[in-house]
Design a binder for these strands. Structure first.
Length: 427
DNA sequence: TATGCCGGGGA
DNA sequence: TCCCCGGCATA
């Protein structure tokens, strides 16, 4: 509990997400890196290294916290699952709403970081591409104009809060998260999509900005379009923080059916993009709210207090979206290979992981249960055997007691009377 | 809950 | 040794 509080305070105190993530994340990152050894590529920041006793102490605390997190996560996971499932279902219906998902995903990613302050990636993103997240934090001057943040902000806060509380996605311990989550995400999104592309599919990029359905054939083009027209950035790629990635979606067109034209795009794209279901009404409402008002986003973010209302339901939704988004990002990353995006994809994946982890957790629990039962069985079996050997197995036939009944106890054999093995009706 | 028995204890 | 009973395991 103390630990949790500690994290929370840190986050709340520092208006900036990143600062939060940064402070906490480095520690976690170190741990995970060591443990996993997966993402060793990035060197730790000098700052991180410099961390001294205090940091170490934190680590200890954080590590201890992990356990509680996991537990909470499991509980909530179930809820999240359900919510997520609902969201997905609903999303599958309407394609247009995608943009929200993307944003949401961002929010999620952010939350994820916070949650998994210990997460391996936080540091990387933190150190390498702090700018990325800037959008999420309007306070940063870098992205003053970015409207999209609003959505993220709303969703973001709620999401974060839960996670911070310990309920969050961070459920899985350091180990599980990365592995399980990745697996889940990969299963759902990674494999199917990439393969499809290769076939007769043509990839187009559609601007998700409101009232802008512009479709371009290149990611660079769409990014530029978004950057210039929607984000109001004049500078080229330099200015890009990867934010553009979130405002366009990748559309796969079947070359055969391309004739249909864009009109077909919207319908097709959803189906094609296995991961991203369309935006449905109810669940979306939340998302939409967060999305639509970019400005509100900015306003909200600074305060950061927004723990209140959205809280759980939103987070769950976010999860789904997040996943979807992750997919998009990844694909984009693979295609475009933006430096930032790469980092993103990683961080994003982690969130899916969380989700998956949740999903998995149940199975795990079951597995444990099974193990338990097995173990018990094993243990119990020996006693039985012992009993059988040492103790006379109960005879099948009726004994004096049953034959004569309690009323005629006098008629019982002495053994029966003495509560010994019946001598009269021996088996 | 009802039985069948074992292990013990008292007379 | 005879009788009884507590308690356990099983049906």
């Amino acid at each position: 509990k103390l630990n949790l509080k500690f994290h929370h305070n840190m986050k709340s105190n520092s208006g900036d997400r990143w600062s939060h993530g940064g402070s906490l994340s480095p520690e976690a990152a170190d741990e995970q890196r060591v443990a996993d050894g997966k993402r060793t590529g990035r060197a730790l920041d000098p700052d991180t290294r410099s961390v001294s006793l205090l940091e170490q102490k934190r680590k200890v605390v954080s590590s201890s916290i992990d356990v509680p997190h996991a537990r909470r996560s499991e509980e909530e996971v179930d809820m999240d699952k359900v919510t997520a499932a609902m969201v997905l279902t609903s999303l599958s219906t309407s394609p247009l709403v995608r943009s929200p998902p993307v944003k949401v995903s961002e929010g999620l990613s952010g939350s994820w970081k916070d949650n998994n302050s210990a997460g391996p990636f936080t540091p990387s993103s933190y150190s390498s591409s702090g700018g990325y997240w800037s959008w999420s934090a309007p306070s940063d001057q870098s992205n003053p104009s970015t409207p999209s943040p609003p959505l993220p902000a709303d969703s973001f806060k709620p999401f974060r809060v839960p996670s911070l509380g310990g309920v969050g996605p961070g459920p899985a311990g350091p180990e599980d998260p990365s592995l399980d989550e990745q697996d889940g995400s990969s299963l759902l999104f990674d494999e199917p999509i990439p393969r499809k592309r290769k076939n007769s599919m043509k990839v187009m990029f559609k601007c998700l900005w409101k009232n802008c359905g512009k479709v371009l054939s290149t990611a660079a083009g769409i990014q530029r379009h978004i950057r210039t027209n929607h984000l109001g950035r004049n500078c080229d790629s330099e200015c890009s923080d990867g934010e553009e990635d979130f405002y366009y979606t990748e559309i796969k067109l079947n070359t055969d059916s391309v004739a249909d034209g864009l009109s077909s795009l919207s319908p097709v794209s959803p189906s094609v993009l296995s991961p991203p279901p369309p935006p449905p009404p109810p669940s979306l409402s939340q998302l939409a709210d967060s999305h639509t008002p970019p400005q509100s986003n900015d306003t909200k973010e600074p305060q950061g207090g927004g723990t209140t209302p959205l809280s759980r339901s939103a987070p769950s939704a976010l999860y789904l979206i997040h996943t979807d988004h992750a997919y998009q990002v990844r694909s984009a990353g693979s295609n475009f290979t933006p430096t930032n995006s790469s980092s993103f994809s990683i961080s994003w994946q982690s969130p899916p992981v969380t989700f998956t982890g949740n999903t998995v957790s149940p199975s795990k629990s079951q597995g444990f249960g099974e193990q338990r039962s097995q173990t018990i069985a094993v243990l119990s079996s020996p006693p039985r055997a012992t009993t059988a050997l040492s103790r006379k197995v109960r005879g099948e036939g009726k004994k004096c007691r049953k034959v004569y009944g309690m009323e005629n106890r006098d008629m019982w054999c002495t053994a029966c009377r003495w509560k010994k093995a019946c001598q009269r009706f021996t088996d």
